[in-house]
């Protein structure tokens, strides 16, 4: 059977599809995060120099990865929206921003909680920490710019451009520990070298990352459904049959 995928670029057609996917992603997220936390907090051994304090890695690193990944995805949707003038793309941009900001905040807070016992400081102005803080401001900027413009199309385009411009910060965050002297340690896991951590620790961390990823999908899809209802309300009002179709077919 050939599925006509382009049909789902229409917000009202995407609405029920998103509704069907949410429980799956949600369940997988809950299971993976539970197993990941179990491995991270109970199974994984104590670290040879940091003791138990290192265990915050199981939240901190996945959160930091997601904060950068979600920004790239958000900017990607903005680019597609600007190029194709597609409403759903901008709705995705709008739906991703709060989750990305949440993960950035989580990465910063857990990092501070980790920094105090290991480095001896909650916060330092090194390149990695500063660029991650800028990322939080970028998410805030994208969200604020959208809400500050009343005209929906202009709000979409302005915040889309804002998101796209900010994408230059992502490689800066990622490579900051290589390019400059930072207090933050280098990458333990990279694409080019063998991981610099014990396998069981790595397993826990990757499971948590996958869990956060699934969580993001579930939350973003639910949020995009709200956005669709909000922004397509006029269309729903004019076509009562589509209301029934969209709202009842969950």
């Amino acid at each position: 059977m050939k599925i006509n995928w382009s049909k789902y670029s229409a917000p009202l057609a995407f609405y029920p599809l998103a509704g069907k996917m949410i429980p799956w992603f949600g369940t997988v997220a809950a299971l993976t995060i539970a197993v990941g936390l179990y491995i991270g907090l109970l199974v994984a051994p104590t670290d040879f120099q940091q003791g138990e304090a290192y265990r915050i890695i199981f939240v901190h690193v996945p959160a930091a990865w997601m904060s950068m990944f979600l920004y790239v995805v958000m900017a990607g949707w903005a680019a597609v929206g600007l190029g194709l003038n597609a409403r759903l793309s901008f709705m995705m941009t709008q739906a991703i921003a709060p989750t990305g900001a949440m993960f950035t905040f989580l990465a910063l807070v857990t990092g501070a909680m980790w920094g105090k016992p290991t480095w001896g400081a909650w916060w330092v102005w090194d390149a990695r920490l500063t660029s991650e803080l800028i990322l939080l401001f970028q998410y805030a900027g994208v969200m604020l710019l959208r809400t500050s413009i009343d005209d929906q199309r202009r709000a979409d385009r302005a915040s889309g451009v804002c998101a796209l411009v900010g994408v230059v910060n992502i490689p800066i965050i990622y490579f900051s520990v290589q390019w400059w002297n930072t207090l933050h340690q280098g990458a333990s896991v990279s694409m080019t070298a063998a991981p610099k951590m014990a396998t069981i620790m790595l397993t826990g961390m990757l499971l948590m990352t996958f869990g956060f990823w699934m969580y993001s999908l579930a939350v973003i899809l639910s949020r995009v459904r709200c956005v669709i209802l909000e922004r397509e309300s006029l269309q729903l009002w004019s076509k009562p049959s589509s209301v029934a179709e969209a709202v009842e077919v969950r």
Binding site: D47, F48, Q185, A187, S188, A198
Partner: peptide, 9 residues
């Protein structure tokens, strides 16, 4: 400044 290596003692 700790390094990026994590392993059991």
């Amino acid at each position: 400044k700790h390094d990026e290596n994590y392993m059991p003692p």
